[in-house]
Nucleic acid binder design. Structure first.
Lengths: 193, 193
DNA sequence: ATAAACCGTTGACAAATGTCAACAACCTTA
DNA sequence: TAAGGTTGTTGACATTTGTCAACGGTTTAT
């Protein structure tokens, strides 16, 4: 079950892991199976693990005063999930994370991850690159949010995450883009014509 | 001129820098004075430095097809500026960065920064914490963009960055929030009544 | 097998926000 | 000092987007 994680690390560090390193990693991560709709994190909880998705699909979202959900992140195989702010500051999370499909994740606790960084240099490299990619993606999303029309935001989304179109229904994608499902439906209709 | 940077590093690492470390840092950073409106980075350039603001105020923004500017980041003393994506990937930047007031920055090149990380452990710690803070702030801004009304986004901004209200005019703050200056003016009017 | 939930679409309408033009007050700067 | 830019405000109007209700087609659960 850990092999996709090993492949992921190798891909981002251009190195191969030794047997021993693989052992250490396997001991640090705990596999967990989630049924569709099962929570990994609920608003108010402290996020004590980061999760690597081996199989399945998940979403991270906030819920507003009116009970409406707003998708902060969508994630499938080879994506990481978790609320960084809660994880780093040990504060109650503002978000929910749950499984959109039946999902297998590898969970790691903060202390174990910090240990791994010391024991497996490739792990540290990988984390660094993950952070870089995350910060670049965040910057682009912020720029899109303040300067693109809904139509352009959707076009960019289709371009960047074509797999997501197959895995998540339109109303989740609409929410991710900050618009309603009706508006997305109309944008798609216009573009088809 | 570097003393505010030393203080900044000390604050984030809870350590004091040795004389030798201060020397190394001083050699790695290059002070630069910018006049109001002077560019530090222009769209299409590759961002080869990160900058630490010692005195002054700057902004980072994109320009859309119609020539309108959209503020991606505002920054004052003790803030870092630079386009991470261009800096990390060596790709042409999508953004402009310029001085809003006469400004003094300390610039550091990528290679020098990587060296410093090796030579001054506190520097690495600081960078790590900077990245963490950046990623938490980005997450919050994304969540605000997709789930808050303009009014609530402004309220949050006032709460988080009260100094910015004194340093930047309303039309820049409006742009940062993803709305027009007219809309912000009306929001403020309503709140005052 | 049946009921219930989910998904996407559409129409009518409401609300939020943008656009454009004008204005006054204030700075800059030549 | 005069001219020109900047800043913030307001009004009238246009556009975008949201809200609500309804519908048919699917999938899911019992």
């Amino acid at each position: 079950m850990h092999s996709s994680l090993f492949a992921y690390i190798a891909q981002y560090t251009q190195t191969t892991l030794t047997e021993e390193e693989q052992e250490l990693i396997q001991r640090a991560f705990h596999p967990k199976k989630l049924r569709k709709k099962q929570y990994l994190l609920q608003e108010g909880d402290i996020c004590r693990h980061m999760g690597f998705i081996v199989r399945g699909a998940m979403r991270q979202y906030s819920v507003d005063d009116k009970g409406a959900e707003h998708i902060v992140q969508l994630a499938i195989e080879n994506w990481w999930v978790g609320d960084r702010e809660s994880y780093l500051m040990l504060t109650p999370s503002l978000y929910n994370i749950d499984a959109w499909e039946d999902t297998e994740v590898l969970l790691i606790e903060k202390a174990d991850l910090l240990n791994l960084y010391q024991q497996v240099p490739a792990m540290m490299q990988m984390a660094r690159q993950m952070d870089d990619r995350h910060s670049m993606a965040s910057q682009r999303r912020i720029n899109a949010a303040i300067s693109f029309s809904a139509e352009k935001r959707y076009a960019e989304f289709v371009d960047c995450y074509p797999e997501f179109l197959q895995r998540f229904p339109q109303h989740l994608i609409a929410s991710y883009l900050g618009i309603t499902k009706e508006t997305l439906s109309r944008i798609r209709k216009q573009q088809a014509m």
